[in-house]
């Protein structure tokens, strides 16, 4: 139904991800969103850090940059500021963006630099073998929280919102059509945009926490997803364990590269500097 092939490096298939990993669903939603916007492959630079989701750029026929752990947004900042006409999309995970890369995440949001961050939240470090992450829920087991996690988790979207992002949305891989719309809006947004995607890791997280098959995990997502509108009418107790989906932030404010360009223009027109 949809021609994904024009955006893919088909000779790199099959995908590295485990059976039932949701990351491929996000990749597809992203490609449909890009197609809707009508961006050419050359106009996109896709930057990632380290982790399962960060392997994504290897499969897409864009300018692709697979960086060091946590630093995708920092590298992307350089690409975007050096070439503001480029659409720069960051693909990252919960550990990559909010643990080791947390500083870059909040500061890019504060700066309101026109990056689109697709943040794959699977509540675990998958690639390194299922260690506890900043979004592992309290009580859940990980290879480094064998007795259950003691640490409360980050609200990733809330963090971006508090730090000043222009656009923040949360979706799930079950709601893939909705996700596509969020990603489209996020890319179109002039400013720092985040789409947090809840995606299951059946191998490193689900199995250890007896959450059943990948199908069960997606069904759970379906049952636990609550739209923003519905959530507004629910009590905090009722919202416990739910995933609130929807566009959480969508505001217009000055974007960094545009402000910088304005400054440069003013300075050029000013005679007798210093």
């Amino acid at each position: 139904m949809f021609e994904y092939a024009k955006y893919l490096r088909l000779n790199k298939f099959p995908l590295i991800w485990c059976a039932g990993c949701g990351d491929g669903i996000v990749l597809k939603a992203m490609l449909r969103a890009i197609d809707k916007i009508g961006l050419s492959n050359d106009e996109i630079t896709m930057v990632s850090g380290i982790g399962c989701s960060s392997r994504l750029p290897g499969y897409v026929d864009f300018n692709t940059l697979h960086t060091t752990h946590g630093r995708a947004i920092a590298f992307a900042t350089g690409v975007k500021i050096a070439k503001p006409e480029m659409t720069v999309i960051v693909v990252t995970g919960d550990g990559d963006a909010t643990a080791i890369g947390g500083n870059h995440y909040i500061h890019a949001a504060r700066r309101n630099l026109d990056l689109t961050v697709i943040l794959f939240n699977n509540n675990i470090y998958g690639m390194t073998g299922g260690q506890v992450s900043p979004t592992t829920p309290v009580g859940k087991k990980a290879s480094t929280s064998p007795y259950g996690n003691l640490e409360p988790s980050f609200n990733i979207s809330g963090l971006a919102q508090a730090a000043g992002a222009s656009f923040v949305a949360r979706g799930t891989v079950h709601g893939a059509h909705m996700l596509e719309k969020f990603i489209e809006k996020a890319i179109r947004k002039k400013g720092f945009s985040v789409v947090e995607v809840i995606t299951p890791c059946p191998t490193a997280y689900g199995r250890r926490n007896r959450m059943g098959t990948a199908v069960n995990m997606i069904q759970d997502l379906k049952e636990n997803a609550v739209t923003l509108k519905k959530a507004a009418k629910m009590s905090p107790e009722e919202l416990e364990g739910k995933v609130v989906t929807g566009v959480l932030v969508d505001i217009d404010k000055p974007e960094y590269t545009e402000e910088y360009a304005k400054l440069s223009e003013q300075l050029k027109n000013k005679v007798g500097v210093d």
């Binding site: 139904m1 893919l8 995908l15």
Partner: peptide
């Protein structure tokens, strides 16, 4: 019904639905 949900939810690009008109 060629709704395409199986295609959208396939994480591995392994299933394609070709509707009648296509």
């Amino acid at each position: 019904t060629a709704c395409g949900l199986c295609e959208v939810l396939c994480p591995d690009f392994a299933i394609e639905v070709i509707a009648e008109d296509e």
